[in-house]
Design a protein around this nucleic acid. Structure first.
Lengths: 231, 231
DNA sequence: GAAACCAAATCGTCATACTTTTAAGCGGGC
DNA sequence: GCCCGCTTAAAAGTATGACGATTTGGTTTC
């Protein structure tokens, strides 16, 4: 997942710093300065900057330097950008954006999954629904979170749409972030669990309408809860 | 938009070649070979490869080389990846994926836009709806396409969700691709035009339900048409 | 036959020199 | 005094040679 080598280490410094606003939009960096600051060679700095440029977070121009681009240019779908934003000051905004995206995508994915899911996926969903119920009853929030993430990722994969499938990790990051956010306060609501079971059953039964509806209830509920948390 | 310099030119060769399957998944390239093939230095090759690595299209490992990664790893939301896939053999699959994504996202964006759109956005939408109608009546497909793209992009921007907003260019690419695909055969259907006006009016009036419904009709229609075209 | 070792291939990093672009300062002409 | 063009220098862009690190795969040895 990670970019490796020294450029990767540089990215781990620069990316969060830019996403978190410590290096503000419009700031200008110079390669030489970065070389000195991180004690690496030109090659390494250039490669790291190239990657940031690929994410549209910076632009490099001769005789000027490396300029941090306005946020509206950033590749907001890039997994690294999302992770960096979730880790910094933009976290609330990023969670809100992702919440809306989930409301749009996950019900559609559930509907598609009811039609396109493979037998393996259907089996996995059933089993995950069971494990979800169990870990909820046991108030084991850590494994609950893990199963919850797996559940949503599986629905997205089972939709048969590669773009939906790729949102699995992102949704996972949201769920993790959300759990961290209100510091795992109470055990999962039985109502939400029931809805997850409904989604799984509907998908297994090939009932797209029902799967979509139940999933919509889940994600709109999550969004409302989020908005409440964030004020 | 483009990556610039020699690495950019390299990308313009390698990206489409990989996305189009001419360089198949699992293929292994060596830096030295690429240097020779394109007559550039290590520096340039490495930077281009780093960018491809950032898109998860290749992975570079010591003593083995630069391996083309399975498609399921690619950053399918990266604008460049989308463009490359639309230009090559993956075009049908990419159009289908994007079609489903539009069905999921655009109605939600329209609903949000009805609530969050700025006055400027509302004005622009009204005006675009008018121009859309006019260019359709005049059977001027080129300007129609341009206005259509602008219309959808504006709705996405007006939603106030940065992630939705970023899909504007992508949707534009789909519309362009679609028009090219069936080679601009007939003039736009009056029904579709009417729906666009409805969306604009509903957003201006703050009627989210109606905007969402009308937009859903537009994009599901587009998806059905697409499925018909692709068989 | 298995385990340890060795060697070659390839990427990764560094240092340095040279090239290209371009912002900005300078000066001359109007 | 203002505008236009020329010069200059600053920064990124490219090329190249040397070395380091790592991994694969064969070879040797027990």
């Amino acid at each position: 997942m990670e970019i490796q080598g020294l450029p990767g280490r540089l990215l781990d410094e620069l990316g969060p710093a830019i996403a978190g606003g410590e290096i503000p939009v419009g700031a200008v960096l110079r390669s030489e300065e970065l070389e000195a600051r991180f004690g690496v060679s030109r090659t390494v700095v250039r490669e790291a900057v190239r990657i940031l440029e690929g994410m549209r977070m910076v632009a490099s121009r001769r005789r000027v330097g490396i300029t941090v681009q306005p946020k509206s240019d950033w590749d907001v779908f890039d997994p690294l950008v999302i992770r960096w934003r979730l880790a910094g000051a933009d976290r609330p905004a990023q969670l809100r954006s992702l919440g809306s995206l989930r409301v749009a995508v996950e019900p559609a994915a559930a509907a598609l999954a009811a039609v396109h899911a493979s037998d393996d996926h259907r089996r996995e969903l059933s089993s995950l629904a069971v494990e979800l119920t169990m870990s909820a009853r046991a108030a084991d929030l850590t494994t609950f979170l893990r199963h919850d993430i797996a559940f949503h990722a599986t629905v997205l994969k089972a939709s048969g749409n590669e773009m939906f499938a790729h949102l699995g990790d992102t949704v996972g990051a949201v769920l993790t972030g959300r759990t961290e956010y209100h510091l795992m306060p109470h055990q999962p609501e039985p109502y939400a669990i029931r809805l997850h079971r409904e989604v799984a059953e509907a998908i297994c039964a090939g009932d797209g309408e029902h799967a979509e509806q139940a999933m919509r209830t889940i994600v709109t509920g999550a969004l409302e809860e989020l908005n409440q948390q964030l004020g």
